[in-house]
Amino acid sequence: MTVLSAPSLTDVQMVVDEVWGTFLGTEEPLVPGPAGDLEVGWSAAVSITGEWRGLVSVELPGPMAAEVTRRMLGLVDGLDPTSDEDVADAVGELVNMIGGNVKSLMPGPSTLSLPVVAAGRVARPSDVVEACRLDAGWGGAPLVVSVHVHA
């Protein structure tokens, strides 16, 4: 039986903080800890294969996904509507950035997949187990970043 290796919560937190702080504005920082019940509006995942195998996912409520999209596209707060296509693109890029940096926390070389994005929850393979879970709040709403590994 092999020991499941997973990134530490501290390292994952640091990766997520950097992505958030850089692209989504420092005036509204990510607050660690659960921030209430998460009603998943959008989610996205990337898989990592190679020396290390795992799945990195991000789950957000719908309004937060829209706000992430507006900020990444540089649209004025709340004014411009965002299409589902825009939201899928932005949330996909978010998980790409987090996933790529999580990959670098683990022994390499490994390959990063293109992101899979879904309105609602993305389906995970049945043989994975959660190895690391970061609950956080942004603008008073909850989000979850998790790392799953193959059992």
């Binding site: 702080g21 692209f23 950035m97 996933g99 790529g100 940096n101 670098s104 390499g108 070389p109 990063l112």
Partner: peptide, 25 residues
């Protein structure tokens, strides 16, 4: 790119990239 393994940066430079910025930036 978000690709940030040491070996990958080496590979990209060897292939002819002049510089390398890691996301997020």
């Amino acid at each position: 790119t978000t690709e940030s393994e040491h070996g990958q940066i080496v590979r990209a430079l060897a292939a002819g990239a002049h510089e390398y910025v890691i996301k997020p930036f």
